[in-house]
Amino acid sequence: MLEVRNLHACINGKEILKGVDLTIKDGEIHALMGTNGAGKSTLSNVIVGHPSYEVTAGSITFNGQNLLEMKPEERAHAGIFLSFQQPVEIPGVSMVNFMRAAVNARHKALGEEQMKSTDFLKLMREKRKFVEIDNKLINRSVNEGFSGGEKKRNEIFQMAMLEPKFCILDETDSGLDVDALRIVAEGFNKLRTKETSAMVITHYQRLLDYIRPDVVHVLLDGRIVKTGGAELAQEIENRGFDWIKEEVTE
């Protein structure tokens, strides 16, 4: 599904990614762990095409398409979804209008017919059950006045609406209490199909108890330095990153 080759990227002239290689196959869940500032969020931002980041070398292909030549919205149409670490508030744009614009844009890009208004509202009702999101929130402006937990739920709700093929969860667990974490993670699990792949960025084992990774990567100083199974996350939880750093310097 996703192939990252020798990816170098910088922001404001500072190199953050220094040669990342990563292959995620259909249906696989990869966890990405690493210290603060290692480049985890940069990697996810580069995959979705954030304009502040510049790719200086390497390639990203997504189901055979060269992602780096595509606009952010085209990447979204191709099936890439980022659950933002800090979802953005958009005063004055209602959730309904926002989602309608997003769903319609996707239908248009895929050459499908536009949804009827009644069908769309029905879809909204169905999908919000996945994350137990309140109808009141749906009628408000996008993320405006939402609590931290509500914002994260809203990200998963949007994921449910857009049915992506590849999801990036960028610290979706940060700022969530235990119950909210369960709801968000279970919501994600319910949405998964056999083909859906994901990259889960987290600092903690806790989220991975709910979303079981097939592969765990450790990103340090802009490179993936260690890859293992789900047990690697547990080991990091117990021992931290220092032992990996030592391995790398040896």
């Binding site: 919205e73 979804f81 953005v88 958009i90 209008n97 997003a102 844009a105 857009l162």
Partner: peptide
């Protein structure tokens, strides 16, 4: 906000309009 909307598939032009 523009980028957030683009990530959801809304074109830059439409996002600006919104």
């Amino acid at each position: 906000a523009l980028f957030y909307m683009q990530q959801r598939g809304i074109s830059a032009e439409e996002a600006r309009m919104l």
